[in-house]
């Protein structure tokens, strides 16, 4: 009996000490880790959609509350105007799980500036071309930043990647999602973008 109690007490103390230490460390590193994820996972896509921007869009970011979720927005400055707005979006309807996306909108003309895939598990050579093939992602550039974005098979204007219709549909879904967020939060976004340093 005594041995049993000793076991429980010792294990509890060890686990408590370990848990406390790790919780403290996580608190301490959380902010840096978030920044690293932004830089290494989302950074390349954001810089790609904002090619030629005069500022660092990763540094010029703000957050807005959308219901219960907090969303990140990145701002790109072009010709002395803060007119590029990039947001994160994702779709769970990819061929193999989630596809993460950066969608950029020109807030002055309400047109899409471009999209960039951040994370995916799609088939190399087929679905993975959503990230690597500029012919596919380039199609979104200049499209109206409202309503539904669809592939040609569904009556839309986006040519799907051949052999990867599911992936292409998922990307279109994610873009549509992002655009609905954009329309919903537009007043707050406009307000925030006035404060961005040019």
């Amino acid at each position: 009996m005594l041995e049993l109690i000793k076991m429980i007490v010792v294990l509890t103390i060890i686990s408590l000490a370990s848990g406390g230490l790790l919780a403290a460390l996580r608190d301490g590193t959380q902010e840096r880790i978030d920044n690293q994820v932004l830089e290494f996972v989302k950074g390349p896509a954001v810089r790609q959609v904002f090619e030629g921007a005069a500022n660092d869009p990763i540094a010029a970011r703000f957050q807005l509350k959308d219901g219960n979720v907090v969303r990140n927005f990145f701002v790109g400055v072009f010709d002395g105007e803060a007119k590029g707005l990039a947001m994160e979006s994702s779709s769970s309807k990819g061929y193999k799980g989630d596809i993460g996306l950066i969608v950029a909108v020109d807030v002055k003309s309400d047109k899409l500036m471009g999209i960039g895939v951040t994370t995916h598990n799609e088939t190399p050579g087929l679905g993975a071309r959503a990230k690597t093939d500029p012919k596919f992602s380039g199609q979104f550039k200049g499209a109206a930043a409202s309503g539904q974005v669809k592939v040609t098979q569904d009556g839309g204007g986006v040519n799907a990647i051949s052999g990867a219709t599911i992936t292409s549909r998922a990307v279109c879904d994610a873009v549509t999602d992002a655009l609905s967020v954009y329309e919903r939060l537009k007043p707050q976004i406009t307000e925030k973008m006035k404060n961005v340093k040019k």
């Binding site: 294990l11 060890i14 686990s15 370990s18 230490l21 790790l22 460390l25 996580r26 590193t29 840096r32 880790i33 690293q36 994820v37 830089e39 290494f40």
Partner: peptide, 19 residues
């Protein structure tokens, strides 16, 4: 438990500084 604690420390520090 002890080993896992040290491994998690390494993982967090690596994520924060050498992503």
């Amino acid at each position: 438990v002890v080993i896992a604690t040290f491994v998690t420390v390494v993982e967090l520090v690596m994520q924060a500084y050498t992503y």
